[in-house]
Every structure is written in structure tokens, then in C-alpha cells.
Design a protein around this nucleic acid. Structure first.
Length: 252
DNA sequence: AACGGACCCAACCGCCTAAAG
DNA sequence: ACTTTAGGCGGTTGGGTCCGT
């Protein structure tokens, strides 16, 4: 014998919820909570299965949900988080207060996928390649990191790591760190590049540049996403050289 | 005004995992 | 140890709405 048998699946209502059903569910949960979704519809007097009640509450009725359009900042965050986390909508939602995985999934399929395609268009690449060239010029010094100009990313490595500066997304820079077994390239990045400079606060961090300016960032796995509307080359360069040993600092 | 295609989004479906029995 | 289920998740669907012709 396993658990007690599931709810009888006969004569249960499907399809869109009406206002009356919503009110019943809201008032029941406000009064009793939702510790047992399976038992809830029967106790509340709803002709729905527990799963349907849970979905309705989690995706629509819960007071924690922020209704309304996504801001550009939220959309940018989704794009960055998706790049790092993939289609893990609930994980993305956990980092966007008030938004549900379902909502994020919907906005991804309707708006953002299309927007991302546009970023990666030849016109957009041309626009971003200017940014890449700027970085290329500013970091081209002895022992400095090197940049792959044929791609939309920037690389710097030491014997154990590689950093990828992804500049394909407008006004944001994603810095990825991965293991690397080759030691033939470039300057060293020590541990402080990824950790010492970052003060953790609820997954969000602050990156401090050489001149003391703070930028909000988000650390997930081996990536750091800098949340800033206007990432300029001074910032990126300063962020970089803080952990590097440049004998000469090139002009921007 | 009518039509058709594109878009939006709530809800369903089916799978997976952890836990209950 | 095994079976069965609840809860959770991502993929998909389909009805409603919008918009261009």
C-alpha cells in the first residue's frame, strides 16, 4: 500500500476559473492556509482538483504576485538570468520578486526570445562590435588579457580560469568564469576577482571599481551579471585592472 | 465593418522527485 | 524495498484579443 488514494478525478471542473471560484479559494486560503492542496478543494467546496487550485493560487491569486507589465529592467534581468540558468523558469522567478515562473515563461516566449534574436542580428552585432573594439583597444597591454574579436565575447585567462565578457546584451555585461586547463594565455585573475570584491546580500552583490563606484551585480554559479544601465568602458577597465597587474595603463 | 493572422496568457498535460505508507 | 501519490516543474495548447488589410 502506498499513500491514501488521490482525489476522485470524476466530475471535476476544468477550464477558466470564474470570479466566484476565485473568491472561494482566496477566502479559504486566507482563513486556513494551503498545507494540503489535495484536501483543499473538498474542504473549500470547490469542484476542482488540488493541482488546479494550487496553480490558480500560485500563478494568479496569491497576494505576493506583482501584476502588470514587466519593466525593462525586469526584462533585462530575465534575459541575463536565462543565459545563465536556461529554461529553469522557477529559478529565474525566485530572483524576480512578485513574478511567477509561468509569467516569465510566457514573456520569454512572446517578447524576449524575439528581442534576443534582434540583438544577435547583423545590425546589432555591428553596434556591439564597436563596444568590443573599445575593450580590445583598452586592454591591449603586456600581460594583459586578450580578446577574441571574432566573437561577441571577451576572454581573459590564467592557468586555471577563463572569463567571458558577454557584451551582446544592451547595457549589461555578463562575466562568466569557467575551468580551463590550458596555461598558455594571458594574465592572472586571482580569487579576489570573483569573491573578495563582492559583498553578498541576498544573492545580489556590489562590485566596487577602482574609483570607489559601486555597481549592483548578481552572482549565480560561476557567473557575475553586472546590473547597470550604462556600463561604460571606464568601468569595465577599472573593474578589470583592479585584479590585474598592468605595467602601463593604455588610454581609452 | 469584416476577415484573418499574429500575439498573449491562463490553464492543462505529462513527467520527475520526494515522501508517505 | 517497493508502490503510490502530492507537489512542483517545464512544455504546450487553445480561446480571447489586437491589429493590419
Amino acid at each position: 500500500m502506498g499513500r491514501a488514494p488521490c482525489c476522485e478525478k470524476t466530475s471535476l471542473k476544468k477550464g477558466p476559473w470564474d470570479h466566484e471560484e476565485d473568491q472561494i479559494l482566496i477566502s479559504y486560503i486566507n482563513k486556513n492556509g494551503h498545507s494540503n492542496w489535495r484536501a483543499l478543494p473538498k474542504q473549500a467546496g470547490l469542484l476542482r482538483c488540488g493541482k488546479s487550485c494550487r496553480l490558480r493560487w500560485m500563478n494568479y491569486l496569491s497576494p505576493d504576485i506583482k501584476r502588470g507589465n514587466f519593466t525593462k529592467e525586469e526584462e533585462d534581468n530575465i534575459i541575463n538570468l536565462h543565459e545563465i540558468l536556461g529554461n529553469r523558469w522557477s529559478a529565474i522567478a525566485a530572483r524576480l520578486p512578485g513574478r511567477t515562473g509561468n509569467e516569465i515563461k510566457n514573456i520569454w516566449h512572446t517578447h524576449l526570445k524575439k528581442r534576443l534574436k534582434d540583438y544577435q542580428s547583423p545590425q546589432s552585432f555591428k553596434r556591439h562590435s564597436k563596444k568590443i573594439n573599445q575593450i580590445n583597444n583598452c586592454i591591449h597591454a603586456p600581460n594583459s588579457p586578450e580578446i577574441s574579436s571574432s566573437e561577441t565575447s571577451v576572454m581573459t585567462t590564467d592557468s586555471s580560469s577563463i572569463a567571458t565578457f558577454d557584451t551582446t546584451i544592451d547595457d549589461q555585461v555578463v562575466i562568466n568564469q569557467e575551468e580551463m586547463d590550458s596555461s598558455e594565455y594571458f594574465a592572472k585573475i586571482d580569487e579576489s576577482f570573483w569573491t573578495d570584491e563582492l559583498a553578498t546580500e541576498n544573492n545580489f552583490n556590489f562590485v566596487t571599481t577602482m574609483d570607489g563606484e559601486e555597481f549592483q551585480s548578481l552572482d549565480i554559479f560561476n557567473s557575475t551579471t553586472i546590473m547597470e544601465d550604462d556600463i561604460d568602458m571606464d568601468f569595465l577597465f577599472n573593474f578589470f585592472i583592479k585584479t590585474e597587474e598592468f605595467s602601463e595603463l593604455p588610454e581609452l
